[in-house]
Design a protein around this nucleic acid. Structure first.
Lengths: 201, 201
DNA sequence: CTATGTTGTTACCGAAGAGTAACATACTTT
DNA sequence: AAAGTATGTTACTCTTCGGTAACAACATAG
């Protein structure tokens, strides 16, 4: 049994190192861009050499894939927990926007959002697009539920879902936690824009 | 005088060829991405060779710069014409959204939107960011005018302007003129989302 | 203590692609 | 027609970078 125990800690260590790699890579990709960040750059952040990375990842693109896996886990977790509640469609959408803004300050999520669907490998790209479509579909479901229970006005749920993601995902490319806009204020503005729009009534 | 005349047509021809290069490059950048598009690829689209491109552009990055110049001209043109009208702030914002959606189907504009602020050359990057800040500022001006004349509800004009651009610019990366969403429907949904939000009242 | 698997290194390969030099051709002006 | 200028080509250089082979050190298991 001792052998098994040791293997677990080893596996955990490995998992931890992979996570550090992903986190550093994601950060670099967001700051300098995917193509301007070399594997040597990423390796240096860990104080290892490039070939060492290949013990944890398959190739450069695999970093994007692994970031996506983690991001999808968290986003789907948020959506599923919201969908299981017994509240109106509007309240669900409200919760989602709030939770999503909270999530996308994480570098790995931001990296996913910015690079999804851009893999060079065709099957990976297809999978990535599928993953996002899946998420988008859940948001559409929320919107449709809202239209059904009269908490959201009648609209094209597909367009609304896409526009919503556009503006939320846009946040990832400019929001800095140390900037002049704080997260509470941001969330407040997004929520009131989404719910009431800009028009004075 | 004949010399001058001839020079003009030559200059025009040159200008035309440059425009074709920009248009093709912008299209390729949007489809395959900037780094996955080589200058050879772009040259081939014109049925010329790579060195010929260098007669019209300084280097690869210069394509982005030239696209940006043209895009800014058009966007600023739209904004300035709106700002000179005597209508409410809300109506201005409404006109802008409408006009902007109309504009961003053009490949050169889409290319600009997707690549602005991403030049490797520091001074070019700074200029690009400045250009966009300038545009964003005009939109903020419109919003503030709207708040002043009570046509737009009180909100953080900076956040609103950014969010608005995020969702509008997001459109550039998915909208296809031959897709399942037509432009009239799209514009309608965006306008009602911006003005009234999603909440049923 | 020895065998095995894990984790890392150094040193290299090969491809891609931006940019250039030198040379060729065609148009314009005088 | 000759001189000069605009426009293009072929063939090359130089660098960067993703990926790999071969080897080293070390922990763990038996």
């Amino acid at each position: 049994m001792q052998g098994v125990q040791k293997n677990i800690t080893r596996e955990q260590k490995r998992r931890q190192k992979l996570d550090v790699i992903l986190r550093n890579a994601a950060k670099a990709f967001m700051e300098k861009g995917y193509y301007k960040t070399s594997l040597d750059d990423i390796a240096k952040m860990q104080n290892v050499t490039k070939p060492t990375l290949y013990y944890y990842i398959e190739n450069k693109e695999d970093i994007l894939v692994k970031c996506e896996e983690e991001a999808c886990l968290r986003i789907n977790g948020l959506l599923d927990s919201i969908l299981s509640e017994h509240i109106s469609g509007f309240d669900m959408l409200y919760s989602f926007v709030k939770g999503y803004i909270d999530i996308i300050t994480d570098d790995i999520i931001r990296c996913h959002v910015r690079h999804r669907g851009q893999m060079e490998d065709e099957s990976l790209r297809a999978q990535s697009i599928k993953n996002h479509k899946n998420i988008e579909l859940k948001v559409r479901k929320i919107i449709q539920k809202g239209i059904g229970d009269n908490s959201i006005r009648n609209c094209n749920s597909m367009i609304l879902a896409i526009l919503l993601f556009d503006s939320l995902n846009g946040i990832t490319s400019w929001y800095k936690s140390d900037g002049q806009i704080n997260q509470v204020e941001l969330t407040k503005e997004v929520l009131s824009l989404v719910s009431r729009g800009v028009k004075e009534v």
